[in-house]
Design a protein around this nucleic acid. Structure first.
Length: 418
RNA sequence: GCGGCUGUAGCUCAGCUGGUAGUAGCGCCAGAUUGUGGUUCUGGAUGUCGAGGGUUCGAAUCCCUCCAGCCGCCCCA
């Protein structure tokens, strides 16, 4: 029988990579705290109807990528493919609209989409996201964008590119769809096969086409920005103005259309060259009207983003932006008595806040080898001599220098651990 | 869901047009040193050659199917 393996597209995250994940998450949490965003944890499993209505029946996500199954009572359940619908559901269900102020929430966790796996795309993938619910002020849009860029900076990512656009209200978007469809009746026959198909099924996606020959044709298609109504236009103008005030550099890309049905007005995306075909490291946008779609009687305009954590970690690892975990002290006890002594001593030293591992190997040579390979900064040798003299041998692994140290000195680690 | 490429030791890979796998590099283990690592030297272990089936006297090598990974499409984070 073959050994069991993980499910296709789902992977194990092992050390030392797991440390990078933790550092990325810690960096994000620091930034969220500075912007007064609080964590929300929603269930990984929701009723299928939530995503069908919230994300949109016609989207690829809902129509072909969800992990859906029947619960024992016949209810259709789905492993969340994204988290905005869940957060909005919680907002409505928990009546957060009855509390004052804008709700600023963040989440970190796994999402599930049954797509073909490739670099930067997994069936279980992780998102770090945030939602600001309860305001349609363009200042919130700018702040959300500023915050997500601050996370990238905190993680140590450079060389990314911010793209922004406005897809307008639901009404202007529908109007634009018609205009585009009309224009494509002329243009599509000269375009690639995919575009000819998209001209019928999803005209907005034509704008995303990467076939070089199609680019001149796409340039000439009407821009969505010309279809915006006066209030959308003003909203977008003010978002840009705020971004300018904040010194944030961006490119307006009228062809940036996002795949989820709920986006309205501001949309944005950050790409990074190191990622390959899946070059979007994060995406987001405003979703005024989503609450009503989910059955809320009160409107709850909002904007949010989600970062592809897998992609962020990949970029951080390539940029070597994170520092590996180090072991401060490796304790090498020789013999049974020394081991008993070491366990007690290690307990005391750990209380001072440094990392300590006690070896269970027997030979000193072996123990030093392990200390070296694990990258321990110091090794503490405990043998009969040391127990008798109440003075241990402390070895600096980088220099090889050995000094003797009493229990008291070890506990005051600032003396020796630089 | 579609297309292309790849799949030999823990990792990176060699193995020409079929003759039953490599003193390969790195890593791992042991010894040179029964209380001293990183350098060096010596020795050692490890493969159902991704899985299954077929062709053949004989398959890692050719054919088919499946699986996995990568790349691209679709789409997205």
């Amino acid at each position: 029988m073959n050994p069991l393996t993980s499910v296709k597209g789902m992977r194990d995250i092992l050390p030392p990579s797991s440390a990078v994940w933790n550092q990325v998450e810690a960096a994000a949490r620091r930034i969220f705290a500075r912007f007064n965003y609080r964590e929300i944890r929603t269930p990984i499993l929701e009723e299928t109807a939530l995503f069908a209505r919230g994300v949109g029946e016609e989207t690829d996500i809902v129509s072909k990528e969800m992990y859906t199954f029947e619960d024992r009572d016949g209810t259709s359940l789905t492993l969340r493919p994204e988290n905005t619908a869940s957060v909005l559901r919680a907002y409505i269900q928990q009546r957060l609209d009855q509390e004052p102020g804008v709700h600023k929430l963040y989440y970190i966790g796994p999402m599930f989409r049954r797509e073909r796996p490739q670099k930067g795309r997994y069936r279980q993938f992780y998102q770090i996201g945030a939602e600001a619910i309860g305001s349609d002020s363009p200042a919130i849009d700018a702040e959300v964008i500023q915050m997500v860029l601050a996370i990238l900076d905190e993680v140590g990512i450079a060389g990314y590119k911010l793209l922004i656009n406005s897809v307008g209200s639901k009404e202007s978007r529908a109007r634009y769809n018609e205009i585009l469809r009309e224009a494509l009746r002329e243009a599509a026959p000269q375009m690639c096969g995919d575009c000819r198909r998209r001209a019928e099924t999803n005209p907005l996606r034509v704008l995303d086409c990467k076939v070089p020959e199609d680019q001149p044709i796409i340039e000439k298609l009407p821009s969505i920005l010309d279809s915006l109504d006066e209030s959308d236009r003003e909203h977008f103008r003010r978002v840009r103005e705020f971004l300018d005030d904040l010194g944030i550099r961006y490119t307006v890309n009228p062809r940036l259309v996002r795949g989820l049905d709920y986006y309205a007005r501001t949309t944005f995306e950050v790409t990074h060259g190191a990622l390959g075909a899946q070059n979007a490291i994060l995406g987001g946008g405003r979703y005024d009207g989503l609450a009503e779609i989910l059955g809320s009687k009160v409107p709850a305009p909002g904007i949010g983003f989600s970062i592809g954590e897998d992609r962020l970690v990949m970029t951080a690892e390539e940029a070597q932006a994170m520092t590996p975990a180090v072991l401060d002290l490796y304790v090498a006890p020789m013999g049974e008595a020394a081991l008993r002594h070491a366990l007690v001593l290690a307990t005391e030293i750990r209380k001072t806040g440094i990392s300590v591992e006690v070896s269970t190997d027997r030979k000193l040579k072996r123990m030093l080898e392990i200390a070296n390979k694990t990258g321990a900064r110091y090794t503490l040798i405990i043998g009969d001599n040391e127990i008798a003299s109440q003075s241990y041998t402390l070895k600096n692994m980088a220099t090889g220098e050995q000094t003797s140290a009493t229990r008291q000195k070890l506990l005051e680690h600032t003396q020796w651990l630089k």
